[in-house]
């Protein structure tokens, strides 16, 4: 029989797994890996508290909302259906967002005056497209690196894709994520349709793969710029939070005079 401790441990794992499925829409990277979830705890009665902090006070409120909305949906999936509280910290619109989130409002409700359109549908689509392309590029390059010919790669259907092997690294990490994006994008696709198609659903001729990859690279270069910047800024912001009287100061941290503390494990 499961003990109370193991139930709580399992729930905590489930909580972090669910949160790990929420992506920063702009970066297509899990919010947990970006370190945006500063605290996720279960209280004695099983309810959940999440503290959320972005790299800067200036991060776009629409991205903040999309992520918090993702968190809200993830928490709704938890097996024990807990009550929860999600709080955004140190953001220029923190108050508006927190109040709106608590009341279950939509983005349009919260930002009626500032948002010209009433929903974020088009923006979500743009981000879905970028994620699709970034994931696809990583897998394509990985397969090339693994020694497959362009012809073999472009001829792959889903069963072949599923058994294809890749070296550990970015491509391996993106392989299941590309699969998910593909199926979300083309729910009606047949199992023997080619796996690598454009966002519009066109086949990619072998001769065009180089140009296609160059285009995908452009998409990734943008996303990585934000990702690298956000990571750097987030790291600095965390360090600044650690400044307490008698404790090491920010300069101690940046001069590496303080031993690194392990990031929270997921």
């Amino acid at each position: 029989m499961a003990t109370a401790a193991s139930v709580s441990g399992n729930r905590e794992k489930e909580l972090w797994r669910c949160l790990g499925e929420v992506n920063d829409p702009e970066l297509d990277e899990p919010i947990t890996e970006m370190g945006f979830v500063e605290r996720a705890v279960m209280t004695g009665d099983g309810s959940v508290e999440i503290d959320f902090r972005l790299p800067t006070y200036w991060c776009s409120p629409n991205f903040a909302f999309l992520m918090l909305d993702g968190v809200r949906k993830a928490l709704d999936q938890l097996s024990w259906s807990p009550a929860y509280r999600v709080k955004l910290h140190d953001h220029m619109f923190a108050e508006e967002v927190n109040r709106g989130m608590a009341a279950g409002k939509t983005f349009g409700d919260i930002f009626a005056e500032l948002a010209e359109d009433q929903d974020l549908g088009a923006l979500r689509d743009t981000f879905r497209m970028k994620a699709f392309k970034r994931r696809q590029e990583a897998v394509l390059r990985g397969l090339r690196q693994h020694g497959l010919t362009d012809r073999e790669i472009l001829g792959m259907d889903l069963p072949a894709y599923d058994v294809a092997r890749l070296e550990a690294g970015e491509a391996a990490k993106q392989k299941p994520r590309y699969r998910a994006a593909l199926i979300e994008r083309f729910p009606g696709r047949r199992a023997d349709d080619p796996v690598f198609v454009t966002w519009e659903g066109q086949r990619i001729p072998t001769a065009a793969l180089g140009a296609h990859l160059a285009e995908l690279r452009g998409v990734r270069v943008n996303m990585e710029f934000n990702g690298a910047l956000c990571r750097g800024l987030k790291q600095t912001r965390y360090k600044e939070l650690d400044v307490v009287d008698g404790e090491p100061t920010l300069v101690d941290f940046i001069m590496d005079r303080v031993p690194a503390r392990a990031a929270p494990t997921v």
Partner: peptide, 26 residues
């Protein structure tokens, strides 16, 4: 608070991307 957050953000860029021996005090 916006003024504080603005320069803090710049400082985060500075500390996040400079070589260690090029860092300034706040």
């Amino acid at each position: 608070i916006h003024g504080k957050q603005f320069i803090d953000c710049f400082y985060a860029y500075h500390t996040g991307m400079s070589p260690k021996d090029q860092l300034w005090e706040k």
